[in-house]
């Protein structure tokens, strides 16, 4: 399998806080990689570092054979790196359609807004938002805004797509719907890195899982290997299990 993204001993700190510690990780073309770990482990930071939002303090990042360690966010987007935000970031006053049109317009080098809107329509209907096309993004429900994020990301024709907790805050029917969409995306050949707390979803869609804990990569393997890894159970799964039984 060929590599599409490689992180080589990537670190990132925020003043005193070490959010990523020498993370070395390869993502293969066409796989769905699960990225899990407790809150504050550095998962979102990893995405931000790859996308140029918070550049790495040390280490190198290679995407499709190109060194992108010092790349600007908008350049990363044009190379085919796209992501959804854990905390949704719509253009609130724009309609759903224009939100997606913006993604198509600026990542694909369209010359005018009109052709971008035409293209945007297809992505909106893929995520099931065609009925909301003319509504301002601010009026959409959380589940719809999450799907809007996805449509925006898709309009950028990504080679590599980061999904940052797309299911957080959704009810089980909505989660099921989102999971189906992710399956379809994976089938279409997009490489996906998925940050997710719902182990059911992770085990359902991911072919490989990596675990981040305190900014360090502590496990990397098949779903079966990872869930049986004592270090992972100790750092993350055990805690999740405890939370679930406490809730009962």
């Amino acid at each position: 399998m060929s590599e599409i993204l490689r992180l080589d001993r990537v670190s990132r700190h925020f003043s005193g806080l070490q959010a990523l510690r020498e993370v070395t990780l390869a993502v293969n073309k066409g796989e769905v990689l699960g990225l899990i770990g407790p809150n504050g482990a550095g998962k979102t930071t990893l995405v931000n570092t790859v996308c140029g939002v918070t550049p790495a303090s040390a280490g190198t990042i290679t995407f499709a054979g190109q060194d992108i360690t010092r790349i600007k966010t908008y350049q990363a987007a044009r190379l085919g790196l796209s992501r959804t935000f854990q905390i949704v970031q719509p253009f609130a006053e724009f309609t759903a359609l224009d939100n997606v049109a913006a993604a198509a317009l600026f990542s694909q080098g369209h010359e005018n807004v009109k052709t971008a809107r035409e293209e945007a329509r297809a992505h909106l209907s893929f995520v099931g938002l065609e009925a909301q096309a003319a509504q301002p993004a601010a009026n959409l429900t959380l589940a719809m805004r999450k799907r809007l994020e996805l449509a925006k990301a898709l309009a950028m024709k990504p080679k590599l797509l980061f999904l940052d907790e797309v299911n957080a805050g959704l009810n089980s029917a909505e989660v099921e719907r989102a999971t189906k969409l992710i399956h379809e995306l994976a089938a279409s050949g997009i490489t996906i890195v998925m940050i997710e707390h719902l182990m059911k979803v992770v085990l359902n869609v991911c072919s490989r899982i990596v675990v981040l804990h305190n900014g360090r990569l502590i496990a990397d393997g098949t779903p079966r290997e990872v869930i049986n890894n004592p270090a992972v159970v100790e750092a993350y799964l055990g805690q999740q299990y405890a939370q679930r039984s406490a809730a009962r």
């Binding site: 987007a77 970031q89 925006k152």
Partner: peptide, 13 residues
């Protein structure tokens, strides 16, 4: 509306 999201969709802000 959202400068971070704007650069994330490929806009040279």
């Amino acid at each position: 509306q959202n400068e971070t999201a704007a650069s994330m969709v490929g806009l040279n802000t």
